[in-house]
Design a protein around this nucleic acid. Structure first.
Length: 271
DNA sequence: ATGGGCACCTGGCTGC
DNA sequence: TGCAGCCAGGTGCCCA
């Protein structure tokens, strides 16, 4: 479900319900996520005010008074604001109940997500320390991408999805951005021209911005924090459109596995 | 240092 | 209707 726009949509959606509010209780029904959810949080968090809600790559960072809660939604996670007394459903693993009666509820059927705690600068946490620039900032540019891709022999799509190169570009938006830039996903990264890199950096930014504006992509059942779907799914040009006509030239869209991930491209527009 | 492959886990869909 | 097989938005880790 969640790529960067979905995580950003979630961040914005939950902020007004929990920012500057105190945690009343922290409940874990299923601690077996990607890493065990620290059960000590049930003692640590209550009484602490949430002072900030940030995002770094696809990680949500809830700043409390003595530390930061690091939340990752994995492949299938979602966060919703519900009334604290609403009965949990099957995959509702963690509740953060606020003193205003609202509850931030984590649902994650596949349990690839994570809820961790750090008392250090969260950006220095081992999981975040090596993450590259945020794609929507100036530090991610055509120049940067050109330099970062030199002597790289992996596919450009694989490089785009490498968090050390650029933060938070997942499979859907890597496919979409490459289509918009007219670049084949399987091309060796190191062979892109300076101009290609400029077009690609621009396409990554515009694709992500457009998706955030639309409230994320609805595939299967993604909904935002108050249960509304995202509408970017209607804007997807290539992702999931194997054999269907390219929206620009009508050639059938091709599907190819690159680094174990489904990749889609127009054989004519991306040449 | 880089890149390839695997692992974690459940649910939904397809085809027999 | 049942069941096997395949697929899925992420990413850390191990190995060559």
């Amino acid at each position: 479900m969640p790529e960067l726009p979905e995580v950003e949509t979630t961040r914005r959606g939950i902020s007004s319900y929990i920012l500057h509010h105190k945690v009343h209780a922290f409940k874990v029904r299923e601690p077996r996520l990607r890493w065990p959810v620290p059960t000590a949080l049930a003692k640590i968090l209550p009484g602490q005010r949430i002072d900030s809600i940030k995002r770094r790559a696809k990680y949500l960072l809830l700043g409390a008074e003595t530390g930061t809660l690091i939340i990752h939604l994995g492949m299938s996670g979602s966060l919703h604001i519900v009334a604290a007394k609403l009965a949990p459903e099957t995959h509702d693993h963690v509740d953060i109940i606020m003193d205003n009666g609202q509850c931030l509820r984590l649902r994650d059927p596949r349990r690839f997500g994570a809820v961790l705690w750090t008392t250090q600068d969260p950006c220095q946490h081992p999981l975040l320390r090596h993450i590259g620039p945020e794609p929507l900032t100036k530090s991610f540019s055509g120049n940067y991408l050109y330099r970062a891709s030199r002597k790289r022999r992996c596919a450009i799509k694989t490089l785009l999805m490498n968090a050390r190169i650029v933060a938070g570009v997942g499979n859907i938006y890597a496919n979409e951005a490459l289509y918009h830039a007219g670049i084949r996903p399987g091309w060796a990264a190191g062979r892109l021209s300076h101009q290609d890199c400029g077009a690609l950096a621009t396409a990554v930014k515009s694709t992500l911005k457009q998706a955030i504006r639309a409230g994320g992509t609805t595939l299967k059942d993604f909904t935002n924090s108050v249960g509304q779907p995202g509408y970017f799914g209607q804007s997807l040009q290539v992702y999931g459109r194997q054999d269907r006509p390219c929206m620009r030239c009508a050639s059938p869209i091709k599907r190819k596995i690159i680094a174990q991930r489904a990749s889609y491209y127009c054989p004519k527009c991306q040449s």
